[in-house]
Design a protein around this nucleic acid. Structure first.
Length: 449
DNA sequence: TCTGGGGTCCTAGGACCC
DNA sequence: TCTGGGGTCCTAGGACCC
């Protein structure tokens, strides 16, 4: 926590709905609900006119329709939202180079990293008013709420208190008092489950948390969460504003209008999602080592299966093959309401860390790496497939190349120069046994799937 | 007519290595 | 021969956020 109120949090009011009302004058002053419009959709944003009826974010759309049948229900126009968001983020960058977007409609700004020198309450209030006026003008009428405080937590609480269309500055020294009477739920990271546990300890407000010992909280909530909640209850928050955070995962998922049981249909969903994931990977110039399959059962329980490859990939056929393999190990009789494919564990191509020593201590090629000399085993027995991009040579692709011998069939798990790891498929389990072959082992029979 | 999609972080157990 | 601790990686699930 700083001594000056130098962290700003901006939150656009009912953002998606406000953009719709701005662009369609007939919707102004009327309830607007943006979100999933299908039978299993949920509300993303409700305009303030719709909130009067009890409609709010994350509510099932069918319930919103029941509460407010006269509202306009819209699926959302993300291109328009991104455009307005970019204008606002640009305005924030005029205040400081250190801007941390949290979503399209929200960001932190570290004013101390910019030209601002006067952090007196009056000065930062004037700064926030100027910012809000520019947002309104440059976006064609959108309103924003702005909070300023000595930490991220306090700035965010302040913008919440300022809503809608207002400013709130929490003066240094008044932080603990400001949050004392808020529900414990106001602490980020305290959701329904944590709130339930805290309630059992008699906690309702932030101040109530202060009555518990550090040890009690850690015992009840676990190490990380306990310490976090304890610190924030006393308004202790040292998190820096971080401008650019690198993505750690990419995923695509679909909720179906009716549950799907059919394997072929599930495979088709995997294919579609995996191709989108691969496209986004390639566009980011990233390669992923871990593929995850996610499924939601009719009873809403979520199941996930993941597999980490020896090498990284951005190829759709690899992601598809791995994801389908993961589905093999999952009972599908009850059907799923959602299926999704994700990737994680990113590397960038042709970087040194992609080369790893093999069992013998020699350096071998990772599947995304560039070939490097291996004097111990200089000759891969198979030429590079010309359809495979150069970085893949000598080109045994995890999940694509298939091995077949008298012990059964399997697919390539990973490959380095001079070795190929094969995972055998078994009748009822994934993963099956794994075996590593030398590339000149006559028992190794590889074909492309 | 039941409850999205895109993420992040944490926990816990097992494998494996030193 | 037995015991054992620490560290890292992987996997599965859960909580949470916008």
């Amino acid at each position: 926590m700083r001594s000056a109120a130098s962290i700003l949090h901006l939150d656009l009011d009912a953002f998606f709905a406000a953009v719709e009302q701005r662009d369609k004058p007939s919707l102004r002053g009327k309830p607007v609900v943006v979100g999933g419009v299908g039978p299993r959709g949920v509300v993303s944003t409700a305009s303030y006119e719709a909130r009067v009826f009890g409609v709010h974010s994350a509510m099932p759309t069918h319930e919103a329709r029941r509460l407010c049948p006269n509202a306009a229900f819209l699926a959302g126009r993300f291109r328009a939202y991104r455009a307005s968001s970019a204008i606002v983020m640009g305005l924030l960058h005029e205040l400081s180079p250190l801007v941390e977007p949290l979503s399209l409609d929200e960001a932190f700004v570290d004013l101390a990293a910019g030209p601002t020198t006067d952090f007196s309450p009056d000065a930062v209030r004037a700064l926030a008013d100027g910012l809000r006026a520019r947002v309104h003008e440059r976006t064609g009428g959108l309103t924003a709420s702005v909070g300023i405080g000595s930490s991220k937590f306090i700035a965010k609480v302040a913008s919440e208190l300022a809503k809608p269309d207002g400013v709130r500055v929490v003066e240094p020294g008044t932080e603990a008092d400001t949050i004392a009477d808020l529900p414990a739920r106001a602490i980020p990271g305290v959701g329904p489950a944590t709130m339930e546990r805290l309630a059992r300890l008699g906690v309702r407000t932030v101040a109530d948390i202060r009555g518990l010992s550090h040890g009690e909280l850690v015992r009840e909530l676990g190490r990380a969460s306990g310490e976090w909640v304890h610190a924030l209850a006393f308004a202790r928050d040292e998190r820096p504003v971080v401008a650019e955070r690198e993505a750690k995962s990419i995923s695509v998922e679909d909720t179906f209008e009716t549950d799907i049981t059919d394997r072929a249909e599930l495979d088709a969903v995997i294919d579609r999602d995996a191709r989108i994931v691969a496209e986004r990977l390639a566009r980011s110039g990233l390669f992923a080592r871990t593929v995850t399959l996610k499924a939601k059962r009719p009873d809403f329980t979520i199941l996930s299966r993941s597999l980490t490859l020896n090498g990284a990939t951005d190829r759709p056929e690899v992601i598809i093959r791995v994801a389908r393999g993961l589905l093999d190990g999952v009972p599908i009789e009850t059907g799923f309401r959602l299926l999704g494919v994700g990737v994680a564990n990113f590397t960038e191509a042709a970087q040194e860390e992609l080369f790893e020593p093999d069992a013998a201590g020699a350096v071998v090629q990772s599947v995304t790496g560039t070939e490097i000399p291996d004097t111990a085993n200089p000759t891969p027995t198979r030429d590079a497939d010309p359809t495979i991009r150069p970085r893949w040579r000598p080109g045994f692709l995890p999940g694509v190349d298939v091995h077949h011998d008298e012990h059964g069939a399997g697919w390539v798990w990973g490959s380095g120069l001079g070795r190929v790891t094969v995972r055998f498929e078994t009748a009822d389990t994934v993963p099956g046994p794994v075996r590593t072959f030398s590339t000149d082992d006559p028992a190794l029979h590889l074909t492309e799937a």
